[in-house]
């Protein structure tokens, strides 16, 4: 399976990655090559095979419904590139 430049641009948009025209070209080539590798899977019949989503069969554990965390606003905001008045600050979001 090979993919074209438009698909590469669409995927880059979904992934929120700016890509230059040069990169569109190299991604198109490389992804096509890699996807070529994937196509061999089509030769393998898997009709009645249960998909494997986790490496080990296990069941969901659960925790008790108790509050254990205190306020760590300042600690977390400290990591932020920009913050203001107790908030993470980002460029204007236009709906």
């Amino acid at each position: 399976m090979s993919i074209n430049a438009d698909t590469v641009k669409h995927v880059a948009n979904l992934a929120r990655l700016n890509i230059s025209d040069d990169e569109v070209e190299s991604h198109t080539n490389q992804l096509s090559q890699i996807l070529g590798l994937m196509d061999q899977l089509n030769s393998l019949p898997t009709d009645n095979v249960e998909p494997m989503t986790h490496a080990v069969d296990m069941l969901m554990p659960a925790r008790e419904d108790v509050v254990v965390n205190g306020d760590s606003r300042e600690i977390l905001l400290n990591c932020a590139p920009d913050s203001e008045d107790g908030h993470f600050r980002v460029p204007k979001i236009i709906e």
């Binding site: 993919i3 698909t7 590469v8 669409h10 995927v11 880059a12 979904l14 992934a15 990655l17 890509i19 991604h27 490389q30 992804l31 890699i34 996807l35 994937m38 899977l41 089509n42 393998l44 898997t46 095979v49 249960e50 998909p51 494997m52 989503t53």
Partner: peptide, 29 residues
């Protein structure tokens, strides 16, 4: 970035079954 692109592509609408689901089944095998 290459892997993000690849991963985004194989999960995207229209390709999930052909790639991701197929790979999960082969993983079982």
């Amino acid at each position: 970035k290459r892997r993000i692109m690849l991963g985004t592509y194989v999960l995207s609408s229209g390709y999930y079954d052909a790639y991701y689901l197929k790979a999960q089944k082969v993983r079982r095998l």
